[in-house]
Design a protein around this nucleic acid. Structure first.
Length: 828
DNA sequence: GAAACCTAAGCT
DNA sequence: GCTTAGGTTTCA
């Protein structure tokens, strides 16, 4: 048989070793080994055994290196299919991430099989005739004392010596010890005891004959089992249902009536009974939308990307549900992405409620075991639908037909960890690979997606009516400067106060939104102007009243608030700015009879607390709900008729080009929570910049006008979608060093750009300057931004790779790190 | 990132 | 002649 070679990505985090390595496949493995399996390979000078993943299998090799052979195969079948391997390779190029990190997101969650080297003494007789050095002797002694089969890891824990590997190798060469490899499962499959009838066609009378009439408890169980009509049941459930003990069931087993066996079960994160979510008839507009998509799917292969622009409450979810149903008819699988699982429980409930056991749920809050099992269900074809956050886009389906991205404008779809992928881009790629259909949906599409739709990259579908044809809520803009002029210094404008009051009397619910948690946003000395900042972040600290602490929202540091100014010793320390906590306090004071609840990161950390607030809201036990962005997403309560936005400008004043877009989206999304039921909704927006187009357009629910304004500005000031932005953040603890290296990096980037004739390189490579958040977690940060057109992006990425990652100029990068982001969410 | 390799210095 | 500590080099 002809020799074959495997290209392997080795489990080694160093950037310099992040490449494909070629290994010889031993003839004994030729039949077994497939792409997507993990293997053990010797690596480095010491031939340390490391894990690797086989990316491709080649017929030929051009003898450039002295190849080594694969030692062993870890998996019995490929962990990931070919298209996901391809996708990972694409990602690492696209986002300048390492191969390893790109594969980590597609591989099953957790390192569920770990490899251990076991060391044991081989020849005690020989041992006496060898002179050993001190280290070797230590190892032998440890093996004698601690038992003969020790993990290499354990030995290293006891004997701290950098030469331990060579000592073990020396001992092995002398034939004194031997080492073996053990592959252990970290996350196992879960088994549960199940009960089945030994003879499925047995009649009740026959059973009575065997069991005997006096054992009435056993008979009761037998009767129950018969009622299941041949279905097996878990032992636990059987005991609970029949209120019986283990011994009674065991007695039945002894009598040969039943059989108790171990059944593999999946851990499920879906707790409790999710009510059935009934199939709903589509409105003509919805139907048209579904038809159009289905026609395209059946038709040409190219036209398979859609953007559904549907106003809040226009029934996008029902469209997704229908599409998934159509997919099932073709035997095709679907992935549904939602921004953040915890924040969109209603969407998930609808999918589970409609499709039941056919749905896997994937998100970051799952335990390792749960996550693994959900992944396994998908891989093994036990489910056809996966609902989840960003990373669910990698769900290992084999026959993918549909990817839906709900609320596609959300920034959670862009990963902030390596690989810094955008779920929309990955989904596009996956759909191109598999021929699946991509659906993006939003009431406020991102400027980028809408631009693509306008230019024919996506097909644009429009839903302009709410499903129960209720009106869009009326939006009132309140100029807070006028309020101040009229002497109202409180958090609520007169109009908002009145509206809340009226709503309370009408027994309706109110949502108040403020995009800032805590009590006061900063603490300052009135005498000298000193602002309390975090020691390690150089960011103003927020006062939290609940635990009377100043907290840093970037690193989590909490300190006691000062009583006197640490700079000038004055006593005039004052608290400025409002957060949700303050709004809560104030609201309770103003409306003492109302039930007020707050929902933000601080009140929802405990498991289930979020759900309980929602439940109370659903059951109308809460009159006023105050929250951060959490209340903006996907909540659907029919009794909410008033939404108040306390300060609409917070997202507008950030030094980021997406400020207006964020503001428009937030106002529109929050406003969309109002008036979803039979009652008219009302929205009150408080702002200091009422004339701003993002606020004015949101008032009119006019996305198109907003888009037209915004897209002109993006073009004029060279922002996405007209250019790509590469953000390079150079950071480290030594400010001077970071600054100097940044300058060097900048210089070399310019050089390289000049070499490839990159137009306007001086204008489009910007920096280095201190990043908007100059210091985070003790690290000083300098930023370089590169703007470029689509057709220049590849070249510029390669330049950045040369200078920052591969370090072509051999700069001393000790003590500094890079954070490279292609088209980041925000440039802060 | 990790281990072998290399070198120089310290110890007996 | 050996160990030890630190720096450098390499990984198929």
């Amino acid at each position: 048989m002809k020799k074959k070679y495997a290209q392997v990505i080795v489990d080694n985090k160093a950037t310099s070793t992040d490449k494909l390595y070629t290994y010889i496949i031993k003839s004994s493995m030729l039949d077994m080994l497939q792409e997507g399996m993990r293997v053990l390979v010797p690596f480095g000078r010491g031939n340390k055994i490391v894990k690797g993943i086989v990316v491709s299998i080649e017929e030929d090799y051009d003898n450039k290196y002295n190849l080594k052979s694969i030692i062993d195969i870890i998996d019995d079948k490929p962990l990931i299919p070919k298209d996901l391997i391809e996708l990972s390779l694409w990602m690492s190029k696209e986002y300048l991430s390492s191969y390893l990190s790109a594969f980590q997101v597609v591989l099953p969650p957790g390192n569920y099989k770990e490899v251990q080297t076991i060391v044991s003494i081989k020849d005690t007789f020989k041992l006496k005739h060898y002179k050993l050095n001190s280290l070797e002797q230590k190892i032998i002694n440890l093996l004698k004392i601690k038992g003969n089969n020790l993990k290499l890891e354990t030995i290293k824990e006891y004997i701290k010596n950098s030469n331990i590997n060579s000592a073990i190798k020396a001992l092995e060469d002398k034939g004194l010890i031997e080492t073996t490899l053990e592959i252990e499962n970290l996350v196992g499959k879960k088994y549960e005891k199940y009960v089945s009838l030994e003879n499925k066609s047995i009649s009740y009378d026959d059973m009575v004959n065997i069991i005997g009439t006096r054992c009435y408890k056993q008979l009761e169980i037998a009767k129950y089992l018969l009622s299941l009509k041949g279905e097996d049941i878990s032992l636990k459930e059987l005991m609970k249902k029949t209120n019986s003990s283990l011994s009674t069931v065991k007695a039945l087993e002894d009598k040969g009536i039943i059989n108790i066996y171990n059944k593999e079960v999946y851990r499920t994160p879906i707790k409790g009974n999710i009510p059935k979510y009934k199939r709903q008839l589509l409105t003509p507009k919805q139907k048209k939308c579904v038809d159009e998509i289905m026609n395209s799917i059946k038709g040409k292969k190219e036209d398979k990307k859609f953007l559904i622009h549907g106003v809040t409450g226009s029934g996008k979810t029902e469209i997704y549900l229908h599409l998934v149903e159509e997919m099932l008819k073709f035997g095709k699988e679907s992935i549904i992405l939602v921004p953040e699982i915890a924040l969109t429980p209603q969407t998930i409930e609808r999918f589970v409620g409609r499709f039941g056991d056919n749905v896997a749920v994937l998100h970051s809050k799952l335990s390792n075991g749960e996550r693994f099992d959900q992944w396994r269900k998908i891989k093994e074809g036990k489910v056809k639908i996966a609902v989840g956050a960003r990373s669910a886009v990698f769900a290992p389906f084999n026959n993918l037909g549909l990817i839906v991205i709900d609320e596609e404008h959300e920034n959670t779809y862009k990963s902030s960890m390596n690989p810094k992928y955008h779920a929309i881009e990955v989904a596009e790629k996956r759909c191109e690979q598999t021929g699946a259909c991509l659906i993006l949906g939003s009431a406020t599409p991102s400027i980028e997606s809408y631009y693509k739709a306008k230019n024919g990259k996506f097909k644009l579908l429009y839903l302009d009516e709410r499903i129960n044809s209720s009106e869009m809520p009326k939006v009132n803009i309140i100029d807070m400067r006028d309020e101040l002029n009229r002497g109202n210094k409180s958090i609520f404008s007169k109009a908002l106060y009145k509206a809340i009051d009226k709503n309370l009397r009408d027994n309706k619910q109110t949502i108040l939104f403020l995009n800032r948690r805590g009590y006061s946003t900063f603490v300052s000395c009135r005498q000298c102007g000193y602002v309390v900042k975090c020691n390690s972040c150089d960011i103003a600290m927020t006062y939290h009243m609940k635990d009377n602490k100043l907290k840093c929202h970037y690193c989590g540091l909490a300190i006691n608030p000062p009583n006197i100014c640490p700079v000038c010793n004055s006593k005039y320390i004052k608290y400025f700015g409002i957060g949700t906590e303050k709004v809560e306090n104030y609201t309770k004071k103003m409306f003492p009879n109302a039930v007020v609840k707050r929902m933000d990161m601080d009140t929802t950390t405990k498991k289930g607390s979020y759900e309980s607030i929602l439940k109370d809201m659903q059951n109308k036990k809460i009159d006023i709900l105050i929250g951060t962005q959490m209340v903006a997403k996907g909540l659907d309560f029919e009794n909410v008729t008033l939404v108040g936005i306390i300060a609409a400008d917070t997202s507008l004043n950030l030094p980021d080009f997406r400020g207006p877009e964020r503001t428009f989206q937030l106002i529109t999304q929050v406003a969309g929570r109002a008036g979803r039921g039979d009652y008219e909704g009302k929205v009150i927006v408080q702002t200091y910049t009422p004339e701003h187009y993002s606020i004015q357009c949101a008032k009119e629910h006019d996305y198109i006008s907003f888009y037209n304004k915004e897209i002109l500005l993006r073009e004029e000031f060279k922002y996405p979608p007209f250019v790509n932005i590469i953000s390079i953040i150079i950071y480290g603890e030594d400010q001077k060093l970071v600054m100097n290296r940044s300058k060097e990096v900048y210089k070399h980037l310019l050089n390289e750009a000049f070499d490839i004739n990159y137009k306007d390189f001086k204008k489009n490579i910007i920096g280095p300057y201190p990043a908007p958040l100059e210091k985070i977690k003790k690290n000083y940060r300098y930023q370089i931004l590169i703007k470029c057109k689509d057709d220049e992006l590849e070249d510029l990425k390669r330049i950045v790779e040369w200078v920052c990652i591969l370090n072509k100029y051999k700069l001393d990068y000790q003590g500094i790190k890079f954070n490279i982001d292609i088209n980041p969410n925000s440039i802060m």
